[in-house]
Each structure stands twice: as C-alpha cells, then as structure tokens.
Design a protein around this nucleic acid. Structure first.
Lengths: 203, 203
DNA sequence: ACACTTCTTGCAATGATTGCAAGATGGACC
DNA sequence: GGTCCATCTTGCAATCATTGCAAGAAGTGT
C-alpha cells in the first residue's frame, strides 16, 4: 500500500477515535477531525467515502465483535435449531451493544460518490453474506437431521435475517413506536416462537 | 386555521407537487420550491419540518392509497388467516407502489427540531398503529375461530409487521444485497409460509 | 385605533458533500 | 543522482439542508 495512504488513514483513524470517545457522531465536525489529524478534509472522502464511513472504520473492531457474538451462536455442539435460536439472540445482543454497526449492516445509507464509500459498503455486505452463509448451513443441517421441514435454505435464511432487522430496528425509531430493550427481547422471542412452531393451529 | 397558514401551506404544496412531478426529491432544491411558491424557505420548516416533510405532504394522498391497499386485505368475507396472508401481500404492493411512503412508515428519519416535523412523525406513527390494530383484530379472530394457535396478538402483530418491514426494505439497499421485486415476492411468500406452518418438522 | 398573538421573512452561520485543479510524493527506470 | 509518471493530498469554491434569530406583517379581539 502507498505509504501516503497508510499515513493519512492512520492519522485520521487515530484522531477520530479520540474525538468519538466522548462525543457522538453529530457532535464532532469533519473540520475538527481533519485538523486534529493534520490532514485535509478531502482526505476523509478519499479514504472513507464519508463522515459515516470514517466513523464506521473507527469502530471497525466492532465487526470483530460482531463475528465474536455470532460465533457464540454457531458453536458445534449445539443442534441446528438451537443454533438458529441463539443466532437471533446474539444478533440482538450485537445490535444493542453496537447500534451504529448494526444500522450500517441492516439499513445502509447511500455510499456517496467516492470510490471508498462504495468499497466500504460492499465490505459490509460481504460480512452480512458471511453470517448468512452460516445461517444457511445451520438450516441445511437442521433439514438433514430431520429437525426442520424441507424449506429453501437460502430463501429462509435471508427472510429470517431481514425479519430480525425489521424487529431489532424498532429500537431506534424516533417516534412513539420505538421499543426498548426488554420489549425487543419479547418481540424477538415471539418471532422465534412463531417461526419455529408456526402460527396455524395443529390441524 | 389562520388564513396565513393556509395560504402558505397551499402555495408550497402546489409548487412542490409540480416540481416533484418530473424530478426526484434530491433534484429539487428548497430555494426553488420556495421561490415557485412565492414564500420564504423558512416557511417550509414552519409548516412541514423539513424538505422530506414537505415531500411527504405532497404525496399524502399515497397514505390514502395505503389505506386502500390494506383495505383490500381485511375484507370481511376472508378468513383471518387469509386476511393476514393478504395483508403481507398488500403491504408489499403498497411499498412497491409508494416507496417514499413505505420508507417513512417503516424507517422514519429524525424529525428535526421543528414542531411540524414531530407532528408529522406522530401522524405517521398513528397510521401504523391503525394498520397494526387491524392485524391484531385478525389474529384475535383467528384464535377465536380456532384457526390459529393461542399467541399474544399484540406481540405477534408487531413482530409480523416489523419483520415485513425488514424484508421489504431489502428492495432499497444500496449494496449488493438489494432484492428486486420478484425476489421480494418470493421472500415474503417464504416468510409467510414460515410463519404459518413453522420451521420445525412435525414431531 | 390599539394591543397582542401568530406568521413570515430575511439573513447569517453551520456543516456535510461534491468537483476540481494545483502541488507534493513515492516508485520505477536510466 | 535525475527524470517521469501515477497516485495522493491539499485547498478552495460552491451547493444545499438545516438551524436560530430578530424584525416586520397580518390577523384577531377590544
């Protein structure tokens, strides 16, 4: 990698990390960050695509946390059904612990006109696919083990993940429909129960 | 209502409607709209809270369309299960026909610091509650008729609606995970099937 | 006509974003 | 070393939504 790129990126990340420590995204200006990093504002766009992209990068470690969370779910000694159930729980834990990252994964914004923005967006999408593949595998496993009905694993995994996003996303609605942590757990539990046992009465 | 309020609102709505006819939200500036309406830019904030709020108001009729769509689902002569199934379908149709409104209902943005913005946000939330109540009623009906298992109707309705939001929202992702109309229909069908019959194999 | 409330307006300021052109720098090659 | 070239960086201007505020205008009631 070009040493200039490396220097600029690191200076920005370091400065941004410090500033984001005690202030929220909208309380810190790009001017301030760039000044603290000793770099031009434009460099933020060159390397991270947007303010949000820079912020994302500073919390990039959270993606590792994401993986760590989800690793908890897919441990080998759980049955497939258990894995799916705990995937939902761990996803919620991840979202509550790292709301910005959850929102970037679940509800990404337009990446802007800089190459760096689009690159970041696709990296995040890859992360989602990665988790989705594990879910697919769990579903496949469940079907193979006879624990689950025969469904399309890909379709089911995507639908499940998207449904979780919709439910968990209620936590950050700005209106009266916002749900708090406890309500979310209830909702997600209800959803999981629904998906497992179905809504229809036994025939 | 103060006649000044009425005049200003109508002038803005008329001008905005015209300009939004052949250009998208981000292609029309507030300066332009205010100039066309012969009012100050600030009036947009006084009455609609934000540019998005003004846009919302111009497509307000779409909310009637929303109701019309959803009315199709909850007709009396359908059974509760049928009603729920078609509620999902109609919600998708509504979202595809009126993406901006769907997004304002499903994923509202911060309403901004003007009173008008918060008012609009709560009106939209009320609209959601209204539809949610119908879903609750359908679920109650299904349980009463013995067609559905005994679940918490409120919890289930909210979870269902939020899940639909997550799935339908995939249509407007800016990244590689976007799903097109056909895929959405498939996904939603899969989700509905999942919710109805459950994922677990018959014991 | 007078007072009072409520709207409207104009203006300045902030801050993200975009586009661009000029300058600086690192690496490859002689 | 010196030269060339691709790539970064920078600075700057411009756009645009948003916010805050203060002065002016217009209803409303007395």
């Amino acid at each position: 990698m070009d040493p200039r790129t490396q220097r600029t990126r690191e200076a920005l990340l370091l400065a941004a990390e410090r500033l984001f420590l005690d202030r929220r995204l909208d309380e810190v200006t790009l001017d301030e960050i760039a000044a603290a990093a000793g770099v031009a504002v434009g460099s933020v766009y060159n390397h991270f695509g947007s303010k949000a992209g820079l912020h994302a990068a500073t919390v990039e470690q959270a993606l590792e946390v994401d993986r760590a969370h989800m690793d908890l779910a897919y441990v080998e000694d759980r049955g497939p059904v258990d894995q799916i159930r705990s995937a939902a729980e761990q996803y919620l834990e991840f979202a509550l612990a790292h709301p910005e990252h959850f929102q970037m994964l679940a509800f990404p914004r337009e990446p802007g006109r800089y190459e760096a923005g689009r690159r970041t967006a696709e990296e995040l999408a890859d992360r989602v696919r990665e988790q989705n593949d594990r879910l697919v595998a769990a579903i496949r496993g469940g079907i193979a083990a006879g624990e689950l009905r025969t469904v399309d694993p890909e379709l089911t995994a995507t639908a499940l993940w998207a449904a979780w996003n919709g439910i968990i996303g209620l936590a950050w609605r700005p209106d009266g429909l916002r749900r708090d942590e406890a309500e979310l757990r209830e909702l997600l539990r209800a959803a999981t129960d629904l998906v497992e046992r179905g809504l229809l009465a036994a025939p």
